[in-house]
Design a protein around this nucleic acid. Structure first.
Lengths: 351, 351
DNA sequence: TTGTACGCGTTATCAT
DNA sequence: ATGATAACGCGTACAA
């Protein structure tokens, strides 16, 4: 089924069919009806190869997120690059901007910059700020689709969110710790920041799953470490003094390095530790038997899927069905953590 | 950079450039040199959109593997379908053939059938049989690339293998069990079949990792259950009588269902269990707290990557760099196993 | 041996 | 408002 076929069936020219399909003006009601009638019966999908070849236009998507030195950034980047390879044959490129100083001002500036450049879509880890929210809504209104990933702002006109199910992550962490510690022992939660919604959800999931355990585990405390190494170290020392170290520790955010070093110098029974994300630090601590598990949130997909969805929307008018796409919850131990950088999808390169 | 540009630079016609690039005959040494000189400086990559559009040829890849009712087949299929979506814009389709009676004869028959049909490449879970080996080598010699997945035959001319690192899987299983059981306890291995190379490697990895443990764990026995539910049930009963049930059980193959049911009816302390693959049975047993972990081998990628590599080779002349691509080792618990079917890549659809 | 012309399905432009 | 037509880059068939 090609435009030509449809034109023939409808008794009009290719140009008219093109106008109807792309909702362009200058079509008489009569012609519009004729073409629509044919379109209903004949399932037409655009030939993307021809589309890419015919239109000399080039489009680009922007990916905006915070730059941190961890492997997270690298994996998101790989995901974005993988996506770019599958879409660049169709005239689409991807601009990735990782910001060191991740402030709302800087982010706003970038959004406005890309808007002026005529960006075809944006994937962003949004900062919770009124101006950002307003800008996202404005972009959507102007026809620039925005997808959030990793961190969401629900009350915006972003098309969808792609990232981890924090609640489930918390439950997963609790399940892992449950298996490691003995009955009637107590566990400690070191939270990155109570201010962060995602950490709160992790804690909620952790807590609720703990309550379901038959091992009668007690949550000794939930302490904020502000993702800091020194703070987590101090917290450990503090909480080991009183009745002895906890049997398990759940670290919801950063500071694994500091916690790990402190645990290393502990005498006697060492607590079991579950933390998040695959970073050089957490991988090293896994290998040193200091932490037991780390939970990944599939950063590759977080970089890949938003672009894929934006592309499908832009080029195939394929609207996004779900508002939230949860990425997989990946459990890593000393044994399987080495695999991560290994197979980053040998380049789709469909282009 | 287009063929036209290169032709202009080299002072020849597009046709000649085409002949040089595709290593076709009827080119004078002089013209060949001129074109090659230009090609060295100008980095040319084919415009796949134009290539797909210009050539009316249609190609197809074949995927051949055993049909089992588990989720494995479904995930491989999804992977293959995802791959097909990214390549069908370029005139490539994918024929998937899952065989119920997976015999060498049947497989050979299929290979010959597809060969006659003019298949552009084959992804296969090969049966270890002299005729299959010979056929794979013959296909390669005739210019039909073959990639093995899930199960490999090393001494063949298959381009590469994509699948799990069984040894590392075994190590992962041992690491998981180590965390669950107490020191000085003993574990039991129920092996699918000693005849299967992959199970042997899993056992080797499991055993070696167990030896590295500081918990002084003993391997009580390695028993074959031929992937059978009834046998695994019988084995459990047998091994629970003597000095009491083992603290941990590693099931390398099938029969989780039977093992799980037997464990459920056990009185007193129940053994911890680690098994393989994500099937309706293992997921249910996870949720019922009967087994602790199951280890997945990323069947989606096993269906996806072979086709991606075949495509890149066929259409971009991009040769495969590695002989072995290990898929990720995915650890699932009750908490994160539900995610699996959820996000099967919202359709690349780059086509 | 070499060059040229046509066609693929679409977009965009230009007459009508 | 509509239809014809060039162009996109490549493969191929055919002419020179």
């Amino acid at each position: 089924m090609t435009l030509k076929d449809i034109a023939r069936c409808a008794g009009v020219s290719r140009g008219t069919v093109d106008r109807v399909i792309h909702h362009r003006p200058h079509v008489s009601n009569q012609a519009l009806c004729k073409v629509r009638r044919v379109l209903e019966h004949a399932e037409w999908t655009p030939n993307l190869a021809a589309k890419a070849l015919g239109s000399q236009n080039v489009y680009f998507f922007a990916v905006i997120f915070a730059h941190n030195s961890g492997a997270f950034t690298a994996d998101v980047l790989r995901g974005a690059r993988d996506a770019e390879k599958t879409i660049k044959a169709f005239g689409f490129s991807v601009q990735v901007e990782t910001i060191i100083a991740y402030t709302a001002e800087k982010q706003l500036e970038l959004l406005e910059f890309y808007e002026k450049q005529g960006v075809a879509g944006i994937a962003i880890v949004p900062i919770l700020d009124a101006r950002i929210i307003a800008k996202i809504n404005e972009l959507d209104a102007q026809g620039v689709p925005v997808i959030t990933f990793n961190s969401d702002i629900e009350n915006t006109r972003r098309l969808c969110f792609i990232g981890a199910d924090n609640y489930k992550e918390g439950r997963t962490a609790a399940g892992l710790l449950e298996g490691l510690v003995s009955a009637n022992s107590d566990v400690l939660v070191i939270a990155g920041s109570h201010a962060l919604y995602c950490h709160e959800k992790r804690i909620k999931g952790f807590f609720e799953r703990l309550g379901e355990s038959k091992k009668n585990l007690r949550l000794r405390a939930v302490i904020e470490n502000h993702d800091s190494d020194t703070e987590s170290s101090a917290i450990l020392h503090e909480y080991c003094k009183k009745p002895g170290p906890p049997a398990g520790i759940y670290l919801t955010g950063g500071g694994a390095q500091g916690l790990g070093e402190a645990v290393k110098h502990l005498c006697g029974e060492k607590p079991h530790i579950v933390c998040h994300d695959v970073t050089p630090e957490t991988v090293r601590l896994l290998c040193e038997n200091v932490i037991d598990f780390t939970i990944g949130q599939n950063p590759h997909d977080q970089g890949f899927l938003p672009l894929q969805l934006l592309f499908n929307l832009a080029v195939k008018d394929e609207h996004i069905q779900k508002e939230i796409f949860y990425t997989s919850i990946d459990i890593y131990t000393k044994e399987n953590c080495g695999d991560i950088p290994q197979i980053s999808m040998p380049e789709v390169d469909a282009l």
